[in-house]
């Protein structure tokens, strides 16, 4: 409960208390216990004081800023328009009920995604320790392997790009020792990014 405005602690007094640790007199301390308004003021001043001493050190170095700002160059931003969501066209768990990779004790899963002229094959293999290895291959359906030495695949968990793998000359990539969780993939090459939005990384039995 706030006291009448005329009784609030002077803002200069609260500032001195927060910034220079000047002790409040007894009347002000009693008022502070009762007054949300003054406690709120003192709170933000204390936070600002604590932040203030460190704030200059939280300024990123210029070279680092330059690197990050370069992402905003028109040529890079243009790439954002070339994000293509790939569609699942084959899943061994779903589409091939009778093949050996599915069923009791299944330790592998094969999936295929397609986007435009490109095909992404994925193979998931579970280990005894319940981690898994994801291997894959990205191919152009008409031209075969992608000719881009900087082509790479990002493993994304809830927006967080946690691992990157480069594509081999044959378009292959691999992520070993993955935890069981939901993840996405971004395949970046030339001026485009193919996205596989979300795959649940657990085996058929939810292990």
């Amino acid at each position: 409960m706030s006291a009448n405005y005329k009784n609030h602690i002077a803002i200069s007094t609260l500032f001195e208390c927060a910034r220079t640790k000047t002790e409040l007199d007894m009347a002000s301390q009693n008022h502070l216990r009762e007054c949300d308004f003054c406690r709120g003021r003192l709170s933000w001043m204390e936070t600002a004081s604590a932040l203030g001493a460190k704030e200059p050190s939280y300024e990123p170095p210029k070279s680092l800023m330059d690197d990050v700002l370069r992402l905003g160059q028109p040529s890079r931003l243009k790439q954002l328009r070339n994000f293509v969501v790939a569609s699942l066209t084959f899943d061994s768990f779903r589409d091939l009920a009778s093949v050996p990779v599915r069923g009791e004790g299944a330790t592998a899963r094969q999936m295929t995604y397609e986007a435009e002229d490109f095909e992404i094959g994925l193979w998931l293999r579970w280990s005894g320790d319940r981690t898994l290895t994801l291997t894959g291959q990205v191919l152009s359906k008409t031209a075969g392997p992608i000719k881009d030495s900087s082509a790479h695949v990002d493993l994304v968990i809830d927006g967080d790009h946690i691992k990157t793998a480069t594509l081999s000359p044959w378009g292959e990539f691999s992520f070993p020792d993955l935890p069981q969780t939901r993840f996405g993939l971004h395949v970046s090459f030339l001026d485009r990014v193919l996205r596989i939005p979300s795959i649940l990384l657990v085996d058929e039995e939810g292990r």
Partner: peptide
Amino acid sequence: ACLDGDGKAWEALVQRYKRLIYS
């Protein structure tokens, strides 16, 4: 604006949150 290719918008986003993230 970034998705429309506006580089200034990207810079504004980075400037807004740079100290938060770096801290």
